[in-house]
Design a protein around this nucleic acid. Structure first.
Lengths: 129, 129
DNA sequence: TATACATCCTGTAGTTACTACAGGATCAAG
DNA sequence: CTTGATCCTGTAGTAACTACAGGATGTATA
């Protein structure tokens, strides 16, 4: 059993974030030492690492929580997990499409900018009625 | 001079958002009628529309404010405007690269999922030490 | 004129997922 | 016994809105 600082180091999840996850019920409340300090087992650290991986993959915290719960079931529910991943993948694709659109629009906007004319064509375009 | 609802309709910026922009000093305080209601001119509406366009292009509110100010200068500063746009374009590109990385990781993660085995390979990968 | 409904006002709280304190207690090492 | 690290609780801040609550006013219809 280790203290929160060590659990943070081993999992890559910040101390404040660990306490935040506890408050939010994302992870169970850990044991406490006689001095009221939190004590974490290797299972607890595993959960934190799991959550870190999910977050790094862009899953929302609720999604990460669902995946963690699925992962801890007796026969981990692959179908449900896959569904969560599919939804997330779709949202990643959608964001990417949106960014592509944005980049094209930005390119268009600045195309004739700094052409030497007195008026900035970019700002003009933004002002257009 | 029109009321806030009409200004919202003409600019595409929500009523609450207009008041928010005013509180934040993004747009100047509008005139008030005798009954204390806000009154907007076509110039005010133009500002709101300008901000809406910037936000739709993904500029942050501070960036949008800077662009609006540049746009209202006597000789609109094209160089500065272009610099803001370049910074934004770079951040758009960076986000896109990040999303590409995410998508690849998600594909890898779910590749052998639902392969009929008892254990979900995706959840297994997320658990890996 | 009465009434209903739309629109406006101010001010506050909620959203996401943390992060950063403040103010204090406890621990480990020299 | 002091110093510095670590821990505790609780609160507030971040970005850019959005959603009320509670009340005042305006407008159109019967």
């Amino acid at each position: 059993m280790i203290a929160i600082g060590e659990a943070s180091r081993q999992s890559g999840v910040g101390i404040e974030t660990i306490r935040f996850y506890e408050r939010e019920g994302v992870v169970p409340k850990p044991d406490r030492a006689a001095n009221n300090r939190r004590l974490y087992s290797s299972v607890d650290v595993g959960r934190l690492r799991f959550l870190k991986r999910c977050r790094d993959l862009g899953f929302s915290l609720p999604e990460a929580k669902v995946l963690l719960e699925l992962s801890e079931q007796q026969h981990s529910d692959c179908q449900s997990a896959k569904r969560v991943a599919e939804i997330h993948r779709a949202s990643v694709r959608q964001k990417m499409a949106e960014l592509r659109r944005l980049e094209a629009a930005l390119n268009e906007l600045t195309k004739n900018c700094s052409n030497g004319s007195l008026e900035c064509t970019m700002l003009e375009k933004l002002r257009e009625s």
